[in-house]
């Protein structure tokens, strides 16, 4: 880019053009993180400005808070298994839907992708209807087929978390299929042609060419998928609200409860929980950035 002589008015315009971005960056990019950290040192019911400084007290409480650690464990459980399920399914779909034997591939791709663009609230409530123990079609089908005698409570103590994982997996898998598809395009065609000449079958090609070629891409997509999953809120809030008996409570729903639904609003403590978990996510996010570059 050629260096052009600058007039004073040009600098003025440059900063005018930047102003809206800088204001929103300050208010919604930097301030929330800084203020969450600041609020976390106070006891504060949300009225006015926090003034009752309590030092690290909120953090000491956090370390011993069984509800927090339950939510913490559930969040990672959810993210781990959702990632473990969605990525292989998405990969298989991507591989099959780039198979030269298949016809009308783009139609199949679009349909598998379809749930991705639906609002999470729509998906969550759609499945509340579908999995309803008494009026839902799934239990009806299983009863009619004689597979079960009693309707299954998909949102009960033992199944609720798995139900949330499966429903969210259904929604997001298409996104990861598209990611894998773009990864598959980077595998050199010649490798497959050479394997064809050697008489390799589809499975051999998958395990000896596709997977090894996508090693670095796989690391990126795993971390990305995991970090995305750790943000879970919508499905849990709508389908179970953390229940039954906190079995599906995740960190975001726990903070939401502390901030908006508990008897005494404890925004200072909620901020401590939020700041602590944000730091955990930040650490994972930085790891991801380094892996991306490495």
């Amino acid at each position: 880019m050629a260096v052009v002589r600058r007039k004073k008015s040009e600098y003025l315009w440059i900063y005018i053009f930047l102003t809206p971005a800088l204001v929103s960056l300050a208010l919604f990019g930097i301030w929330p993180m800084v203020a969450t950290g600041y609020f976390s040192f106070f006891r504060w019911n949300g009225i006015g400005w926090p003034s009752d400084f309590v030092g690290l007290k909120n953090y000491f409480e956090l370390l011993k808070d069984p509800y927090f650690w339950n939510a913490f464990k559930n969040t990672f459980f959810y993210a781990f298994f959702q990632t473990l399920i969605k990525l292989p399914i998405a990969l298989v779909l991507a591989v099959v839907l780039s198979e030269t034997l298949m016809k009308a591939k783009s139609v199949y791709r679009a349909l598998f992708f379809l749930p991705v663009i639906l609002p999470t609230a729509v998906v969550s409530l759609d499945f509340k209807l579908i999995l309803n123990p008494f009026t839902g079609p799934v239990n009806k089908l299983l009863t009619d087929l004689g597979i079960i005698d009693m309707p299954i409570d998909w949102f009960g103590m033992n199944l609720a978390m798995w139900t949330i994982i499966v429903v969210s997996t259904w929604q997001v898998t298409g996104r990861y299929m598209v990611y894998w598809l773009s990864g598959l395009q980077t595998v050199p065609r010649e490798l497959y042609e050479a394997a064809d000449i050697d008489g390799a079958n589809s499975f051999q090609k998958f395990f000896y060419i596709t997977l090894p070629s996508l090693k670095k891409f796989t690391m990126i997509i795993i971390l990305l998928g995991f970090v995305y999953a750790l943000r879970v809120f919508d499905y849990v809030k709508i389908m179970t609200d953390g229940g039954p008996a906190y079995r599906t409570d995740v960190v975001s729903t726990y903070i939401y409860r502390l901030a908006f639904e508990s008897q005494a609003t404890r925004l200072g403590y909620a901020s401590a929980v939020a700041f602590f978990f944000a730091m955990v996510l930040l650490a994972i996010g930085i790891t991801r950035t380094i892996t991306n570059k490495g």
Binding site: L18, L25, P32, A35, S252, L281, G285
Partner: peptide
């Protein structure tokens, strides 16, 4: 510095730092 700060927001878990936004 502006560029780096904007890039850094990608890493910010905004879902968890909503209390100051709500307050604001």
């Amino acid at each position: 510095i502006i560029f780096i700060t904007i890039l850094a927001t990608i890493l910010m878990p905004s879902r968890y730092t909503f209390i100051p936004i709500f307050d604001l």
